[in-house]
Structures are given as structure tokens and as C-alpha cells.
Design a protein around this nucleic acid. Structure first.
Length: 280
DNA sequence: CTATGGCCCTGGTTGC
DNA sequence: TGCAACCAGGGCCATA
């Protein structure tokens, strides 16, 4: 499922095909992808606008629009489980599972989404739509000390907390499992019970895991995620916990276990990631 | 503030 | 071999 590295990769790879392009028309094949906006309203909002920037915030691809050189709203794309963004040349048929297309003055942008969970929405302003999100894990402002302090203020299991986009924005199931494995923290450990040393280690692991995944253009599995160029990412070859149920932990050889935490499949090493008594 | 459960979806997997 | 039941899972919402 696309998380920060996959979304970052997507934004980077589609930007060249979008920058400076003018939107000539739209094609909406699954209305709910627009997140509640009517087809005509969406069309009025974007047709005639020009793309001035493509970037990422949390797990959103943000497409800035302009009219006559002035800001004219943004498109926020959330890939959720199976969403993809693909730029194709003019005259090329829409790929399978196309939900929304933008016809550009040169080529097309397609939003594909097998399971239809994703969203392709227009907003007059970016800030209100994004302000509920927590800090970026790779931002300089998100220091190890900050993470330690934030964890200390929360009395809940660390894994659901790290998945909470208002706490920290961009992590999903995979990279949380990988980060906790790296920091040797049990996914059900109470956030406030995580030692300072482990909190600092967690910060380092989150950044390392995300940066390495971005370099490898994300992770591909289940035949779902592909980069916009159709290539699979390769970070899945570096998974140490996620999806490795029953396989030996690379540190201690104990089999990786799979449990359910907060309704999410969770992978960890029962020997390296020990739950403190205080966390039950 | 935190926890739980339902909902949205469909391709792939499992079970018979 | 065929087919139905079941499952995954991010974000959001209602409920406790």
C-alpha cells in the first residue's frame, strides 16, 4: 500500500510530464473518487488551469494549479491501497481501472484505482485540507528529541500511534513494522513507556527506512504498486519484518511472528522486540 | 484521550 | 474444475 516513499516516488516521476501543462478536459469514470464534489463543479474548477508544481505532503500527491499566473487551488491525490497516477501520451487509451483522467495540452494524467478507495479531489486552498496532518518524518523540524517528547505524552500502543497521521504523517503499515523492528520496540509497547534511547533509535530507523525506500522507488508486492513508469519498486527485498511471518529474524533467528494490533497485520520478532511488563 | 467496530471496494486466496 | 465465502487494508465516522 502506497506510503510516504511510494507517494514521493510518484510525485517525482509524474512531475516532468505535468509541469506547465494546461488542463483541457476531464474524464470521470468513478464519481466517488472526487470525494463528494459534483462532476460539473470539478470540471469548472480544473479546466483551463495550469500545473505549477507537483509535490508530496504525508501520503498525498499535491498538484498546484494556477490561472493567469495566480494560485487557483490544488488537486490532492490519496492513493490509499491501490491507487496509481500515470501520465500517458496523447491518443493513448486509458489504462485499466481508470477512475479520473485529466486531458492535458500534451498527454493525459490518469488516476487508476482497482479498489476505488483512493481520492482525487480539488480544493480551492491547500492549507485547510492538509492542516490536520502531523509533522513530516523526514523534516529537519522533526528531531529525535521532538519524537521522544511526543511519545512521552501519549498513553497508547506505539504502532497505532505511528499510524495516526495527525501524530506523524506518512507512515503506513509496512514502514511502521520495519521501523519498530529496527529500533527493537514491541508494536504494543505503550508510547510513554518507550525509553529515551529507544525513542532516539526509532527516529533514526524511521528516517533510514524511509530514505532507503525512496532511493529504491518504494516497495512492490501483490502485483499492485508500480511506479508511474510501470516499474516495480525494489525496497520489498529489504523487508526485515513485514510479510516475513515464520521466517527467521536476521538478528536472532527466531521466527518472525504475525499478530493483529489495532486491526492491522503486524510483524515483529518476539525475541528482539520484547513487551515491557508495564505495557502488559 | 483512547479503543473498537463498521464501512468503503475488488482481486486473489482458500475451502469444499 | 467451479464457485462461493473470505480477506486485506487507510482513513473516516459513530459509539463507548
Amino acid at each position: 500500500m502506497p506510503e510516504l516513499p511510494e507517494v514521493e516516488t510518484t510525485a517525482r516521476l509524474i512531475e516532468p510530464g505535468l509541469l506547465g501543462r494546461t488542463i483541457r478536459g476531464v474524464q470521470v469514470e468513478w464519481l466517488r473518487s472526487l470525494g463528494g464534489m459534483s462532476r460539473p463543479k470539478f470540471e469548472r474548477a480544473v479546466v483551463g488551469a495550469k500545473v505549477s508544481r507537483v509535490w508530496r505532503r504525508a501520503k498525498y500527491v499535491v498538484i498546484d494549479l494556477q490561472r493567469r499566473g495566480k494560485p487557483a487551488g490544488v488537486l490532492l491525490v490519496h492513493l490509499r491501497m491501490t491507487g496509481r497516477l500515470v501520465v500517458t501520451g496523447r491518443g493513448v487509451d486509458a489504462p485499466d481501472y481508470n477512475r479520473v483522467s485529466l486531458e492535458l495540452d500534451r498527454g493525459n494524467l490518469h488516476f487508476l484505482d482497482v479498489r476505488k478507495f483512493g481520492r482525487f479531489t480539488f480544493h480551492p486552498e491547500a492549507s485547510p485540507a492538509l492542516e490536520h496532518l502531523g509533522p513530516e518524518p523526514l523534516s529537519d523540524a522533526t528531531t529525535p528529541e521532538f519524537l521522544y517528547g511526543a511519545l512521552g505524552a501519549r498513553k497508547r500502543a506505539i504502532k497505532p500511534l505511528l499510524l495516526d497521521q495527525t501524530f506523524l504523517a506518512g507512515l503506513g503499515n509496512i514502514y511502521v513494522d520495519e521501523s519498530l523492528f529496527g529500533a527493537r520496540i514491541h508494536p504494543q509497547e505503550l508510547a510513554s513507556r518507550v525509553s529515551k534511547a529507544k525513542a532516539l533509535k526509532l527516529h533514526a530507523e524511521i528516517q533510514r527506512v524511509l530514505r532507503e525506500a525512496i532511493v529504491r522507488e518504494g516497495s512492490s508486492f501483490d502485483a499492485f504498486y508500480r511506479t508511474p513508469e510501470g516499474q516495480p519498486g525494489s525496497y520489498q527485498h529489504l523487508f526485515r519484518a513485514y510479510g516475513r511471518t515464520g521466517k527467521p529474524c536476521e538478528r536472532c533467528q527466531r521466527p518472525i511472528r504475525r499478530i493483529v494490533v489495532g486491526q492491522r497485520g503486524t510483524h515483529f520478532c518476539p525475541r528482539c522486540q520484547v513487551l515491557s511488563k508495564a505495557s502488559r
